[in-house]
Nucleic acid binder design. Sequence first.
DNA 1: ACGAGGATGCTCT
DNA 2: GAGCATCCTCGTG
Length: 220
Amino acid sequence: MNLTPLTAGFFDRPTLDVARDMLGVLLIRDDETGYRAGRIVETEAYTQDDPAFHGWGIVDRHTGLIKPDGRGYDLFAKPGTSYVYLIYGMYWLLNVVTEREGVGGAVLIRAVEPMHGIDLMYEGRPAARNERELANGPGKLTQAFGVDKSQHGIMLTEPPLYFAADPAVAPCTISTSCRIGITRGIDLPWRFFVDDSPYVSPGIPSDIAAERRREPERRR
DNA sequence: ACGAGGATGCTCT
DNA sequence: GAGCATCCTCGTG
């Protein structure tokens, strides 16, 4: 598998473009633990001016300086840097930093279609009952790939963890929706996914979830 | 099939 | 003390 990693230049672009262009790209972990690869089928974009962004509000309006102790400071790092964080005290979520250094932005990798290293993925994810459940969610794919805090802040442009264009590119239809699991910025349609992929996460976009909460009955 | 609730730890108020 | 870019289990139909 001699695949050329995507370079920092790929991520040094508007975050929405990167998020869309990452669909169909391979996520690869290649190190002493083994070789794992999966095709990305779902992403979400988070930008500096986005209330759901971890780095939201840490840029001083007057000086333009970024508070170095603020949460999300690492989201202003060099494009191609990893941003891994713990959610709900239990699950690690993998992002790749976008935009030029000093500008905040990231793409959350939400789901991949397992391609290689399936057995290794099951070892990290004993709850998975089939291949589809190995990595159809942002917390699941980090378990399948063994990603945790130790991969935070590394460059995702070289082993052990990197992205690569799939040589066997399959044409696909891309859809968008609002993002999943958030309470702020819920109306921004910044989730991208491969339309007909069974490996997309089962989550419900936040705007639809909020609507259902308002009207609990009314079914079919 | 679907919904409710719990797990669990870090950050911010 | 609340909220969180989630997932799993166990109820009820």
